[in-house]
Structure formats: C-alpha cells, structure tokens
C-alpha cells in the first residue's frame, strides 16, 4: 500500500499538463497501470465480502423465506403468530438504512470477528443486511408457485417437507435465482458503503484515495470496476434464469 503514496502527485501533475476532456481520458489511461495493483486487490476484497455475505444470505434467508410462506394462512404449517413475528423481524431489518445497520451491529461484529475493520468484519453487517432482503424475495418467488401443484402433491400423499424440497423450491427456481442475483447486486453496492467505515474493497479505495486525497482517477476506476462486477453478475444470472425458463 505504501507504494501508492506518490500516485496522487504524479497524476495531478499529468492532468495539469493536458487540457480538455480528451486530455483527462488520456491521463486517466496513463495512470491505470499505476493504479491497477491496488484496484485488483480491492476488487478481490469486494468479491470476497460479497461472496461470503451471499452464502450466508442464502443459508439463512432461504429457510426464513420458506417459513414466511409455510406459516401463512393456508400454508403448509399455518402459524399466524410465528409468521407475524418473523415478518416483523424481517421488516425491521429491511427498514434500517445499511449505513445505520453497519454502525448498529459494530459490537456484534467485534464479538464474532474480533475487529470491526477489514473485509472479513464487513461480512457481518453485509449478511445481516441482505438476509431479510433475500428472505422477502424468496417469499415472493414461492408465492408464485401454482397452488394447484402443491395441492396435487398433497393428494399424492406427499410429506410437507418433501413438498418444500421437491415441489415448491424447484418450481420457484427461476424466481429464486433472479432474487439471488438482485441480492448479490445489492450486496455489491452495500459493500462499497462498507468501505466508508473501513470495510476494505473498492468502496474503501474510492473513499481513501479518491475522496480523501482528491484523486479523481481512483474514483473513476472504482466506478468502472463496480459497474463491470455488477454487469458480470447480472449477465450470468440472466443467462441462468433464461436457461431455466426455456424448460
């Protein structure tokens, strides 16, 4: 990281030498090789945070979404009180702005990870922010499943747990994948916010180098990389959903 201390001075000098928008682009491109090592490391940090937060969102959000549907009236295990409770918890999680949630769970993060700084620490608030988000999307996807198909499964003497595993989840798969993609994209944007309190990754780099040191090149570069990451995730997700929908 120390090698970058000189970067701002260099690029600032270059920028002043060339005028106009074309000149700005040219100097940005010339600064790129210099910036690349730190950009690459920051991208890896972002991917690392988002990957693990996505894993935890699925591990917790998927069962939570299933429970929201199953405990509803006319569901597999109607339990209005349990549903109201789960729904309230999810709503609280959904209504907190992510930046507030991050600060609010600092104590938990320190307890679980031992520090509140760095990408690993950021996984905690990211997961907590994304779990209720994904759970609602799971709920919506499961509600789209044809009730007639669930009823047919009952008529065939299917156990409820089997109905979840062999009917509801497979039937809702395209919707679940679309929800997962939306969650990952949201996590990428959250992860950039996590940079604001030292979470690491592209957001962190944008704030340290771009904002605090007035280096526009870093700002542009992180914006471009964030766009690329989101595009890759979205395209892969769309491809997957389309393959499923063709059946």
């Amino acid at each position: 990281m120390t090698s970058h201390a000189m970067t701002p001075a260099l690029t600032l000098a270059d920028a002043s030498a060339e005028q106009g928008p074309l000149g700005a682009v040219a100097s940005f491109l010339r600064a790129w090789p210099e910036m690349w090592p730190s950009l690459w490391l920051a991208t890896l940090d972002t991917v690392y945070m988002v990957w693990w937060a996505s894993v935890f969102s699925v591990l917790v959000g998927l069962p939570l979404g299933v429970l929201l549907v199953a405990t509803d009236r006319g569901g597999l295990v109607p339990a209005p009180f349990v549903r109201a409770l789960l729904s309230a918890i999810v709503n609280i999680g959904r209504s907190l702005p992510f930046i507030v949630l991050m600060v609010a769970v600092l104590a938990l993060t320190r307890f679980l990870v031992g520090t509140t700084l760095g990408p690993t620490a950021a996984i905690v608030p990211l997961s907590i922010g994304a779990i209720p988000f994904f759970a609602r999307l799971v709920e919506t996807a499961l509600r789209e499943v044809d009730r007639g198909v669930v009823e047919a499964a009952h008529a065939m003497g299917t156990r409820r747990i089997t109905i979840v595993g062999k009917v509801m989840l497979p039937e809702a798969l395209p919707g679940l994948i679309a929800g997962l993609v939306m969650t990952v994209v949201t996590l990428i944007s959250y992860s950039a916010m996590a940079g604001a309190i030292g979470g690491g990754g592209l957001g962190d780099l944008a704030i340290r180098e771009g904002y605090q040191r007035f280096n526009d090149h870093y700002l542009w570069a992180t914006v471009i990389l964030l766009i690329v990451v989101v595009q890759v995730v979205q395209s892969l997700g769309d491809l997957w959903v389309r393959r499923l929908a063709r059946r």
């Binding site: 008529a155 003497g157 059946r247």
Partner: peptide, 20 residues
C-alpha cells in the same frame, strides 16, 4: 392418511403438472 391417499389418484382441471 398419506398412504391412503396414494391409493386414490386425482386428475385436475388445470393439470397441476410440475413445470420443473
């Protein structure tokens, strides 16, 4: 009840087939 239901077949108006 589940095993009794397996001895009764049911056909549905809108087919109720699994798209997956």
């Amino acid at each position: 009840l589940r095993s009794a239901r397996r001895r009764i077949g049911m056909v549905h108006q809108h087919f109720a087939l699994l798209a997956s």
